[in-house]
Write a protein that binds this DNA or RNA. Sequence first.
DNA 1: AGTATGACTCATT
DNA 2: AAATGAGCCATAC
Length: 123
Amino acid sequence: MVQGQSKTPSSSTLIFFEQVYELVKLIPRGRVTSYGAIARALGSAQSSRMVGWAMNVCHQYETNIPAHRVVNRCGLLTGQHHFGTPNVMQALLENEGVRVKNNKVVDFKSVFWNPMQELTKDL
DNA sequence: AGTATGACTCATT
DNA sequence: AAATGAGCCATAC
């Protein structure tokens, strides 16, 4: 648990991050999800931006987070610029079988993974 | 303390 | 249907 120096998330935010990370790590290979879906699954439906922010700083907490599987609600790879190189995100997705065209996930609705599905699968 | 920004999303025009 | 504005939450300056 290393707290970032530049980014200093509050304790509440930090907990939120952990939930986001756990959920993101649960995303099956070859599937993607959206920030809003994650935010909603965590109860903060309007905090989709916070999810994106969590992804932004996720690399400084854990590098095992498949942030490339998280796109916006349109399936656009909006965060590709934050992967160091813009082609990494698309490459990772295509490597998992997710077709990406013009920075957008092809057949997004088909590869979309609903986090609520995992959270409510037992309910 | 107030303004500006952001890996978003929804509502209205 | 596309484009524009506003809402949202937290951080950075």
